[in-house]
């Protein structure tokens, strides 16, 4: 969980370990000094009580340590700070209580949208534009980078890079209301070739229904007004307030990284969204009957 998987996280982890080790050493030193002061030999107590010692340990050491740390962290910062243009820019917007993700073209215009899952190519530096659609959230993937807040009306920029393929869990790290605890996401790092293929697929509109059941599922989706909040390219569903579902079947998880993406969990989520994730913005669609619900889940699962 805490093992760093990219250069930025690596440097951050370096600082963290240094602080931890240094802090431990200082703590041990202080304990030793206290022991000496209380139980130690008179000579040692004498040395400790000297004015020079108090000044050196009480003033000199902290100043030296903190200055050293400052220089080190500034240098690390400078090392992390992007020098070359990013290979890719992705806009991530925190919403109550999920993550809206837009992949941008070189002019910064959104090309397609996805949700709760950020795919990146391995070994490339990716810039994330962090925004908020409502309240303050905080974007944190411990294995890839430090925390950065998402503040309404501002854009914060964060570079991430993964050095090996993998799935890295992220979490909202700033309390943002009722379902904050269940506001997770995943960063999926793939080899560049696979990533390019994925990008290509995401640009396409939703796949046509594979069979009669899926076609029924699409009709159920449209008839029940799911399109008032969700967008599925190519179907006429153009809502913007809920996650984009054009390629929902191709994601690893459902419900902001909470459930595995399977037909059963899709159906369960639709029927009892408020039971699974209380207070989230999706109502439980109790009125959709069993067969319709299964068809709807089958269609959504097929939207890869």
């Amino acid at each position: 969980m805490l093992a760093s998987q990219g250069p930025h996280a690596e440097s951050t982890a370096g600082i963290a370990w240094l602080l931890f080790a240094g802090g431990t050493a200082i703590f041990a030193g202080v304990l030793a000094a206290i022991w000496l002061a209380a139980r130690g030999p008179a000579g040692a107590r004498d040395v400790l009580a000297r004015e020079g010692m108090v000044l050196a340990m009480g003033l000199g050491l902290p100043v030296a340590t903190l200055s050293g740390l400052l220089v080190h962290s500034l240098r690390t910062n400078a090392a992390i700070a992007p020098r070359d243009p990013p290979a890719l820019a992705i806009e991530v917007q925190g919403e109550q209580w999920w993550w809206r993700v837009h992949y941008l073209d070189d002019q910064g215009r959104p090309v397609f949208a996805t949700a709760n899952e950020i795919r990146i190519p391995v070994g490339r530096s990716v810039e994330l534009l962090l925004r908020s659609g409502d309240v303050i959230h905080s974007f944190w993937v411990p294995q890839l980078a430090g925390k950065l807040d998402m503040i309404p009306g501002r854009t914060n920029r964060l570079r991430i890079q993964a050095d090996r393929p993998g799935v890295f869990r992220g979490q909202c790290a700033e309390y943002c209301g009722g379902a904050h605890a269940m506001m997770a996401f995943h960063v999926v790092a793939e080899p560049p070739a696979e990533f390019e293929a994925w990008l290509q697929r995401q640009r396409e509109p939703a796949a046509p229904p594979r069979d009669a059941e899926a076609a029924r599922g699409r009709d159920v989706f449209l008839a029940n007004g799911c399109g008032l909040c969700h967008h599925v390219a190519g179907t006429g569903a153009m809502g913007r307030f809920g996650p984009d579902l054009t390629h929902v079947g191709g994601r690893l998880h459902l419900v902001s990284g909470w459930l595995p993406n399977q037909r059963g969990s899709i159906a369960g989520w639709i029927a009892s969204a408020q039971h699974v994730k209380p207070q989230n913005r999706m109502p439980s669609f109790t009125q959709i009957a069993g067969a319709d619900l299964r068809a709807l889940a089958a269609w959504l699962e097929g939207l890869e």
Partner: peptide, 9 residues
């Protein structure tokens, strides 16, 4: 009071 899971329609 907050009601999340509604009664069946």
């Amino acid at each position: 009071e907050r009601r999340f899971q509604p009664e069946p329609r």
